[in-house]
Design a protein around this nucleic acid. Structure first.
Lengths: 329, 329
DNA sequence: CCGAAGTTTGAAACCGATTGCAGAACACTG
DNA sequence: CAGTGTTCTGCAATCGGTTTCAAACTTCGG
């Protein structure tokens, strides 16, 4: 049986109220009494019961995190960041994986929302109105998506993709292809917009290969289109797809980067392990997790007066082995 | 403000006690009353407050899951399984990542243990006595490790590795190397034991290349030892290491599987995407997550009388592109 | 038709904390 | 020394459920 506040009170010779105050509003209790209480609590190994506290304060001390697919290597890093930051702030994290299923997602959200103080939601494809409804009743932060006044943490795709295009231009490339992710994904739209303006500015030709599932197979599927299009360089929606691309290109006997330069986005672990290693726009995924928690916590503290309910995280091109000078042909 | 049991009671014209009973012990209340209560609850969208319920029942309805490193592709699958099964049983899951740090781990455990009904622990390297102490005060299930009477879910390494050795033997290999994982990891010890008895039985020579970190770099580091040892085949502690091995072998100009056959263990996604694709001992990771939850829930129901507090999951060799007939030389 | 047994229901206590309110103790002012 | 503030502490109510206990009402056998 766990020790209760009453036992601590008895041990310290004070009332439970005093114990409660000594622990959570130390200023309100005489310093010698406080000392006595703290020692008693220490001696008995007392830790307040969160459920009981939550019952009266209305706070649970928990955060919820919903991701579409943990198997996608982007998310574990994010989760780690959320986890770590939440722990520092003494919050515990409920994790839910919606398996890319919007229906499951809204169920999860509904169940989870009741048990947490706030939610972090990665829902690249959920309907905007659903999210708005949710945001009206729950404190939430979106990751990797932005619309309306919903607080969010996103990456500065523009900057990273700008760097990538500049890198390709510097290597003498004039034609670049885009291997797109899911049509409905916010970040896919954001990235292609960024890419368009970068290639326009650099005077490069852009070939858009359309939309593919954001998995290895998606990259494989896109490869032949890319080759046929006659570009000398390609940027993929994410690293996993870029790796699929590399695999298929190798199978077809094309050399990367001699024949074709390839750039991914994300900087997942595997991208430094492929051969050639993958040049990629690195996203600070753990940072994003931490930032989302920070934002959420400040929203919980003062629901209205948060200066910047939208955070944008830096991105950085990492040049590795999959990009090289354009073929002279 | 959420609707409380009292509002439902008023709406249905009964007392709160009756509402409580109608919902959680339906047999104890008259069927027409029950109907009325259920309809009222429905109408008001009532959902019991878990904290309040937990306060009196002593149950939280939550499970805790502690993994050493989410970035290791083995774990996301496990987490998904745990998640999915827990949701079916109407439990929520607290996830904690200990970052491979045993000290952090015991902190996490202590914090988490108070907020959950039971814990699932993946702690390949934690001290046995710590885990035993913990098991004495908390209902817990270990995954991928087994000792004492602590309930556990493990894989049948023996079978899978037996299949791998038989496969190699059938291809004409007589010498096989083992690329070991962390010295202190339980599954590493279990696997090498299984491998020893399989190679002995098959009359094959076994070269043990020692211990390496269970990451890509570990496989890279082991590669040259393997080559120098003159074996024709190699089994790695896990897929990530096997991929590292493949990478380094390619860099050195060796052909897989013509010069050397490589087998991994885990069947992570990436292993079907490498080139060559990786022959591997497939572990049913999601199954393991589900099994751990099942075991945990049955332990919670009847703390003593669980027939089999240790579950062993099947393993299956998947033959892909990285194994072939032994070089004739 | 009465008493015993069985059903249903509600009142009230309780889980373990927090907090509004009021009284006690003490210091300070005039 | 009375009067007025401060500071500190305890009582009791409260959060939203569950559960014990007993009362009220049925049902049934004799």
């Amino acid at each position: 049986m766990r020790t209760t506040i009453r036992e601590v009170a008895r041990e310290a010779g004070v009332s439970p109220s005093t114990v409660s105050r000594a622990l959570s509003m130390p200023g309100l209790v005489n310093s010698v009494t406080r000392e006595r209480v703290l020692r008693a609590a220490q001696r008995l190994g007392y830790e307040p019961n969160r459920a009981a506290r939550g019952l009266i304060t209305g706070k649970t001390g928990n955060l919820g995190l919903i991701v579409p697919d943990l198997a996608n290597p982007f998310f574990p890093s994010l989760v780690k960041g959320v986890q770590a930051r939440a722990r520092e702030a003494d919050y515990a994290v409920f994790l839910a994986d919606s398996d890319e299923d919007p229906a499951a997602e809204s169920d999860l959200v509904r169940v989870l929302a009741k048990q947490v103080d706030g939610l972090i939601l990665c829902s690249p494809r959920g309907r905007e109105e659903d999210i708005l409804t949710l945001a009206a009743t729950t404190t939430l932060v979106m990751v990797n998506r932005r619309f309306g006044r919903v607080p969010s943490v996103v990456f500065d795709n523009s900057d990273g993709i700008g760097q990538a295009v500049a890198h390709l231009a510097a290597l003498g490339h004039h034609r670049v292809a885009w291997v797109g992710g899911p049509r409905t994904s916010w970040s896919n739209r954001d990235r292609i917009r960024a890419l368009r303006s970068a290639t326009d500015a650099a005077g490069m030709d852009l070939y858009v290969a359309g939309h593919f599932p954001p998995q290895f197979e998606g990259g494989v599927a896109a490869a032949d289109l890319i080759v046929a299009s006659g570009v000398t360089s390609v940027i993929a929606y994410n690293d996993v797809m870029a790796l699929g691309l590399l695999g298929r290109l190798r199978d077809r006997g094309l050399r990367v980067p001699q024949d074709l330069s390839v750039i991914g986005i994300d900087d997942i672990q595997m991208s430094s392990m492929s051969s050639p290693t993958l040049t990629t726009v690195s996203l600070t995924k753990e940072q994003a997790g931490r930032a989302a928690v920070d934002l959420l916590l400040s929203l919980l503290e003062r629901p209205d007066g948060v200066r910047k309910p939208r955070r944008e995280l830096p991105t950085q091109l990492l040049v590795r082995g999959s990009t090289g000078v354009a073929p002279t042909d």
